[in-house]
Nucleic acid binder design. Structure first.
Lengths: 233, 233
DNA sequence: GCAGTAAGAAATGTAGATTATGTGAGCCGC
DNA sequence: GCGGCTCACATAATCTACATTTCTTACTGC
């Protein structure tokens, strides 16, 4: 279920790990960034060639990812990139709203100076990170990292590593959908939206913070629905 | 994240699958049933010998389980059974109460005849399954299966496969704790408790059903806390 | 057109080589 | 003498290469 902090740190410092873990990280990123077609088969040999590794590490990476639902595994038939659908996205957004509402409410209820500092700091970083649309070059990973850091800061005080983990797992999946509509999301005014969420949270206004947070998710969903509808989906 | 229905069916019918999947299932059960000591190292060769398999399938099974947090993986150091602690259990119970409350509320709100039928049926099965304490022989897996089926029926109408999956993942982990205190749980009066939950749910009384459900989890937690305290833990 | 079948492709499993970790004896500095 | 360091060896994880099994597909005959 996502990378733990140790792994993220290790990856950040470029430390050596196992080949299986290296493939796991790259494959994960490629799936999240939409570098594979949804539904596509991930043939072991091809994946091994792509990342310059043997088949065994690839197999281990795929098995890990299958437990995270980031690949579909069919015994004796291989591994596949999970499909995307508006139906699934709706369910995902709905569940995110439920769980992040709880996590945010608990965080606000138990708020500490450290939690507030985290929000202020990660918002500052996020607000100073430019959003790159596909037309401008496309690599938006810095924004993606900071966006996630901000949302994690919001829920970090909820007192449940389980809940934080679930929210992160769903953030991963949401990221997949984000890349199929880079032109509408992230939007330019997202800094304002995030600031409003931050302010409500720091003010201790539980209901307002929850509303603003979930409205953001629902708005993004609606944008995507309209876009798909317009495209004749 | 737990077995999907296809896998459970396949396992139930004894269909052939891969060696990796066979090891995965057995290892999973052994961990849930407490057949390994918490914190214990799972040495590849030993595990392979135990289940009469090669090292590769074991490795794949362990990698899958590591993504479910049912084993801890340390690169280049091996795999370990996750430790148990009262601290972790409290967090787990707290999170279960949050998530199952939502799932139950949504299920009741969207209730359908099919959902009600599922509850009645699984409760009937559960109520007719004897509870075997360790003194009486110990194999309580039939009760365990039906108990889980009942709780799954309660939340099955929530409209989110994500949420159902999360609840099941936590049920798995709760099962580990249950086995360290078989003498207090499952209790003999659990049939009554489950009946009360069912009645509130079928009556459409959201608040009462949620209270009864979460009270059951909290009561079990308290029993365990008292037992550990009495044992001088 | 459909069932059966056989060749090829691909997943799975095994064996052994390779690499990393942990351990303990011996050595150095204090 | 004691604590800490280094280095060699034992143990175990990891990876590669290859063998085996299974699935897919295209072809044949009815």
């Amino acid at each position: 279920m996502a990378l733990n902090e140790t792994e993220i740190d290790a990856a950040g410092r470029g430390e050596k790990t196992t080949a299986a873990t290296a493939v796991y990280r790259q494959l994960r990123q490629d799936i999240l960034k939409g570098n594979f077609k949804p539904g596509q088969k991930l043939q072991i040999d091809q994946v091994a060639t792509r990342y310059g590794s043997g088949t065994n590490p690839v197999r281990e990476a795929l098995n890990r990812l299958s437990s995270e639902h980031l690949v579909d595994r069919h015994d004796q038939r291989g591994f596949f990139v999970p499909p995307l659908s508006m139906e699934r996205l709706r369910e995902l957004v709905k569940t995110r709203c439920w769980l992040e509402s709880i996590a945010l409410e608990e965080s606000i209820t138990n708020r500490t100076p450290g939690w507030e500092d985290g929000i202020v700091l990660t918002f500052h970083h996020l607000s100073r990170t430019p959003i790159r649309t596909p037309e401008e070059g496309g690599d938006n990973s810095e924004w993606e990292v900071r966006h996630r850091a901000f949302h994690n800061a919001l829920i970090s005080g909820c007192g449940s590593t389980w809940l934080i983990g679930f929210c992160n797992e769903m953030m991963d999946h949401a990221e997949r959908y984000r890349y199929i509509s880079m032109s509408t999301y992230p939007r330019r005014d997202s800094v304002v939206e995030h600031r409003l969420i931050m302010e409500a949270a720091l003010d201790g206004d539980v209901e307002l913070a929850k509303t603003r947070l979930t409205d953001q998710y629902r708005l993004t969903l609606r944008h995507l629905e309209e876009q798909v509808a317009a495209a004749g989906g």
